[in-house]
Simulated scan of single mutants.
Amino acid sequence: MRQIILDTETTGLRVDDGNRILEIAALEMVDRKIVAEHTLHLYINPERDSEEGALNVHGLTTGFLSDKPKFAAIVDDFLSFVAGSELIIHNAPFDVGFLNAELGLLGRGKITDHVASVVDTLAMAKEQFPGKRNSLDALCDRFEVDRSARVLHGALIDCELLAEVYLALTRGQDSLLIDFQPDTGGAGAAGVSASGIARKPLKVLQPTEDERAAHDTYLNDLDKIVKGQCLWRAIENPAPAEPGTVQ
């Protein structure tokens, strides 16, 4: 699956207030590696001023953007770049809402009409770290991603940071895929997994006599508490089958 790390900057927070996109950045990722020579970065004339709060965040003034192309002039290049990909966006509903609004003004449908899927890394982070701060800055700190170059919010640098955060968020998934790859070579106990990594036999450690005694004592005490209903004891000493039954 071809993936695109995407971020936008806008004139304000609410699309319903008529705010517009003024910057788009997108990085292509293939096989979990950024394709450096395939990057999209566009400044856009939003045809309106930025709200003060947004201007303080991105620093892109009306004067700077006045000679930049309007969204209608870049829409084909943008859609061609993201076509058929999986978009990876932090707080995806925000960016998707603005993209849908811009595309809607041009009669070009919604962004999901042009891409395979959208992944929200903010939702992923909230699932992995419930109750904690999961802003892009916070995740960079958590995963030790260097964000020293991020003075103002910019779409391109935010994409670069998000790419590293996404890889960190999903790194464990790769490990699971490798762990559960079936063996295909029939190489025996010390065979080679489907990932090509030599695998040694598992070492089974037997408990010492003291550990066995401590375990039995614990189970005996537990059995007294639950009045003979300890499931572990039932598993260790199953009741004999009644005559005429099949086990």
Rank of each mutant, 00 (worst) to 15 (best):
M1K: 10
M1Q: 09
Q3L: 07
D7G: 01
T10Q: 07
G12T: 09
L13Q: 08
V15N: 05
N19C: 12
I21M: 08
L22A: 03
L22W: 00
E23H: 03
I24Q: 06
L27S: 05
K33C: 13
V35I: 14
A36K: 14
T39M: 10
H41G: 06
L42V: 14
N45V: 05
N45F: 00
P46K: 11
R48K: 09
D49S: 11
S50P: 01
G53H: 08
L55H: 05
V57W: 02
G59D: 07
L60G: 03
T61C: 08
D67T: 15
K68T: 07
A73I: 03
D76E: 13
D76K: 13
L79V: 08
L79T: 05
V82M: 02
V82K: 02
A83I: 03
S85K: 00
I89G: 00
H90R: 02
N91F: 08
P93Q: 11
F94H: 05
V96I: 10
G97D: 09
L103G: 03
L103V: 04
G104I: 01
L106A: 05
G107L: 06
R108A: 09
K110V: 05
T112P: 00
T112S: 13
A116K: 09
A116G: 02
S117R: 12
V118W: 01
V119Y: 05
T121H: 02
L122S: 01
A123L: 10
M124D: 13
A125I: 04
E127P: 00
P130T: 11
K132E: 13
R133L: 12
L136R: 04
C140K: 06
R142I: 06
F143P: 00
F143S: 10
D146I: 09
R150K: 15
R150W: 05
A155V: 08
E160T: 09
L162A: 07
L162R: 03
A163V: 07
A163W: 04
T170E: 13
G172Y: 10
Q173C: 12
Q173I: 15
Q173Y: 11
I178S: 15
Q181E: 15
T184D: 12
G185Q: 15
A187H: 14
A187V: 03
A189W: 02
A189N: 09
S195F: 08
K203C: 04
K203P: 01
V204M: 13
P207V: 07
E209G: 08
D210C: 06
A214I: 03
H215N: 14
T217R: 14
T217N: 15
K227Q: 13
L231Q: 12
R233M: 13
A234L: 12
E236P: 01
E236C: 08
A239M: 10
E242M: 12
E242S: 11
G244C: 05
T245V: 04
Q247A: 12
